[in-house]
């Protein structure tokens, strides 16, 4: 990570917080998250469900419910493929204003988990793709349609001239996700956020969609934020990885470091729980004991200490651990980090 220059950072999150005011109390869905996305690289965000990874991606879009409060800075350094003198702070923008709307879909696009639900069933996919194109790059309907057909062709949809006038329910799940990707990339965004794009798909289709995202990313030099709970997919897709737990980043490093020198007990536990061939033969899977605590009115302690094998009484349950840069570009949030207590994965 040290090899990367600071000036190719395209989007940076600094101490981003998303809190939801619920009747039961304050839900800290995202609590002080910082990371950066570099030009042309893929950042993987991994964590269990409910850890705040999807809320983080929605925060980048400023798409949050009314009772959600956003804090910290989300700095965008490039707009319409031009470097900005002063970065735009998305966190401070009016959530319905014209500025954020031109960024959404134009500079940052998103693909969602369930392609079944992500398209409106009442409109043809063409209608929905052309709408995005008309908003950002080409207001002329006929030209926009041509761009949309091209976009569908680029995601390997056969016979796009005909497919463009079909309704979502006429397409298969994999086809729909391709159409979704076509829509997201049709306006040539500089950042693509993929929120578990393959979870709802068959395994064979999954591989195809992942390849497709990787190819398109290389061709267009797009930066990708890839959100998943699947470490296998992270290994295949990412350059850098953020591990999230309970709304906080617990480990942040490049992908090789994560797999070969994980520092946080949670990361190590996650890696252990990957089913490998070896483990399948032994017939045993390891899982992390306990469940994620309910993130409302949490006590001040390390969020993982109730499930951690290495938790130390009197240390881990007394205060929150700080983020430590144990090596250049390798950040860990653990009291034991950098104290030579490194264990093998």
């Amino acid at each position: 990570m040290e090899k990367q220059r600071k000036d190719d950072i395209i989007l940076e999150l600094k101490d981003v917080k998303v809190h939801f005011k619920l009747d039961e109390g304050l839900l800290k869905a995202v609590d002080g998250v910082s990371f950066a996305i570099h030009k042309g690289r893929t950042l993987g965000i991994v964590g269990e469900s409910g850890c705040g990874k999807s809320v983080t991606s929605n925060a980048i879009f400023k798409i949050l419910p009314k009772y959600g409060l956003i804090g910290g800075d989300i700095l965008l350094y490039e707009k319409d493929h031009k470097r900005l003198e002063t970065p735009i702070n998305i966190a401070k923008l009016n959530p319905t204003g014209p500025e954020i709307r031109s960024i959404r879909g134009g500079n940052i696009s998103m693909i969602f988990q369930e392609p079944m639900k992500a398209f409106s069933p009442l409109h043809t996919i063409g209608n929905q793709i052309i709408e995005a194109i008309q908003l950002h790059i080409e207001p002329d309907p006929a030209k926009a349609r041509a761009i949309a057909i091209e976009a569908l062709r680029s995601v390997d949809i056969s016979n796009p001239e005909q497919r463009i006038d079909e309704y979502p329910h006429q397409l298969s799940g994999g086809m729909r996700q391709r159409a979704m990707i076509a829509m997201a990339l049709s306006c040539k965004p500089s950042i693509l956020i993929a929120d578990e794009p393959t979870t709802a798909l068959d395994v064979t289709v999954q591989a195809q969609v992942l390849d497709l995202i990787n190819n398109l990313k290389r061709e267009n030099d797009t930066s990708v934020i890839f959100i998943t709970h699947d470490l296998g997919v992270i290994a295949e897709m990412s350059d850098d990885v953020v591990v999230m737990y309970l709304g906080k980043v617990v480990e942040y490093c490049d992908v090789d470091t994560l797999f070969y020198h994980p520092m946080h007990p949670y990361t190590r536990a996650l890696l252990k729980s990957i089913p490998t061939e070896d483990k399948i033969h032994k017939g045993r899977f390891e899982s992390i004991r306990g469940t994620v605590p309910y993130p409302i009115n949490l006590p001040v302690e390390c969020g993982f200490c109730s499930r951690c094998d290495e938790a130390e009484k009197g240390v881990c349950d007394k205060g929150e651990p700080p983020m430590v840069e144990v090596e250049p570009g390798h950040f860990v949030r653990c009291f034991h980090a950098g104290k030579g207590k490194e264990a093998q994965a």
Binding site: I63, I100, R101, R104, A118, H123, Q128, A132, M180
Partner: peptide, 28 residues
């Protein structure tokens, strides 16, 4: 619903989005 967020993520204006997608779905 997810498709509303999709439309919002496209950068569509709130009002236009509302009339084109969820309201039509709700009127059905």
């Amino acid at each position: 619903k997810q498709y509303v967020i999709t439309a919002r993520a496209k950068g569509l204006k709130e009002k236009k989005l509302l009339w084109k997608y969820p309201i039509r779905m709700a009127v059905n």
